[in-house]
Each structure stands twice: as structure tokens, then as C-alpha cells.
Amino acid sequence: MIPAPFTYQRASSVDEALELAARAGEDAKFLAGGHSLMPLMKLRLAVPETLIDIGRLGELSYVRADDGHIAVGALTTHDDIARSDLLASELPLLAHAASQIGDPQVRHCGTIGGSLAHSDPAADLPAVAVALGATFVARGRRSGTREIAAGDFFLSLFETVLEPGELLTEIRIPKPQSAGWSFQKFAKRGIDWAIVGVAVQGPNVALVNMGSTPIRARGVEQALAAGSGPREAAAHAAEGTSASDDLNGPRAYREHLARVLVGRALAEAASRG
């Protein structure tokens, strides 16, 4: 299948990307790795009029230690994240989760910024970013540069607080206070999206695919803060979630999975803490 016709433009700098986006208007989309967008376009579920290719903006592909946080450029691929020595030692949750995305071909193309901006609640990195308490840096011609907390970023399926023409440029992740981490991804097959996933970093617990956005498992976090053990805390995993019935099972099953996986994640995180 073939995407509907569109105009392709390639940006050679962030400024140019923003300029092109402003000119193209509402029906423009940024194209990073394209592995979320292109399949939708081929099925003609997405029909942008203009694609602005930001894939060559080397200035946005990096992992570096900054003051008290790790900065990851929005165009860093999943594969580069998974292989980053710095992340392996400082943010193993992120490096490990990136290594679990899709398949090698997808990881070679897909980028962290693309995945976050696409806002698919079944994707792994949004929940990981939430669990890590990340801050996103965005740039727009009107809005200038602004910082958005991961927890405020995702609005619903395919919808974020980014304005049209606004570009996600960097993900800033504070150095975790507590070393214990775990990423539990439950899927039928290796290549599948998670039926349910759990990201744990210290006291933070976030869920993949349990609602229209990544969800912070507040009930679990509060129980942990109040001194509950992992098993007891995990019983709260489905609170505040809104999983839907789908091909992979009814809502009740996914709520059950959330409890099981949170239990396992907390146990694993504790063993690493």
C-alpha cells in the first residue's frame, strides 16, 4: 500500500524545520524515523499534506550528562539509546526499555522523540519517561523554547500538548534518587506492542497501555510510600486505569496483568535497589 500524495521537505536545521512547519500549516507533520507515521500513512489512516523530514538533524541525536540530569536528543534512535554506555550505567531503565521496542529494523530508524510525540499509549517509552520524571524540551516559532513535564505531555491517543509546528527537541531525565528499576513488557510475541507494560524507577510506577495515555500507578506509589510491601502495593495497580477490551483480552484480564506485572516489577526493582 502507498501513502496518499504529499509534499516532502527536508530540514537541515531545527530553525529551518520550524520555518517549514510554520509555512506548511496545520496539515504538516514532522517525519523523524517514520516508523510510527509511515505505516499509518500507508493504510491512509494519516493523510498529511506536507512531511517535513527532520531525520538529518544530527544536532538532535545525542546522549550526554548535563548538570544533574541526562539529556537525550529527540532524534536519538532506539538502537543508539539501547547501546549507550552512559545510559546503561545512569538510566538502565531507559536503555533496557529501548532495546525491547519492535525489532532491530524499527530500532535502527525509530527515535525517542518520534515515539513520545506520536503518543501511542501502547508504546513503551512514554510510560518510561513518566516513570523517570522526564522533562521534555520543545521549540516552536510562536511558543519559543519551553519545558513540559512528561506527566503533563500526553493528552490521549495520538494527542499531546505540542502545538502544530512545535518540535520536541530534547528529553531531560533527572539522575534517579533510587537505583531500583524494572521494565516488564507483556506481549503475545516478541514483536508485539505491549498488552500491558510496567516501568518502575525507585518509587515511581507507570503503566503502558492501560488507558489512552501512559498512566502513573498512583495507588501503588501511595501504598509503597505508606510502607506496604510490593505484593500488597501491586494490588492497587489497576486503580485509576481505563484499559479497554480488545483482541488481546477483556479489560478485567488487563487489570489482572497490571497487578501481576507491577508485583514482578517491584520485586525486581527491589532486588536491584
Binding site: 517514520g34 516508523h35 509511515m38 505505516p39 500507508k42 532491530p104 529494523q105 524499527v106 535502527h108 530508524c109
Partner: peptide
Amino acid sequence: TSSCGACTVLLDGRSVKSCTVL
């Protein structure tokens, strides 16, 4: 849907699915 990998080629030395790359 970028599922099957029959179209895999190397782009600058790394495997990609050429049905999902312009």
C-alpha cells in the same frame, strides 16, 4: 505494516524495512 521484514535492506550499514522508508 512493517511487520514481515521481506523488504529489509541496509541503509548506511544498518538494517531497515525499505517499505517504511521514503
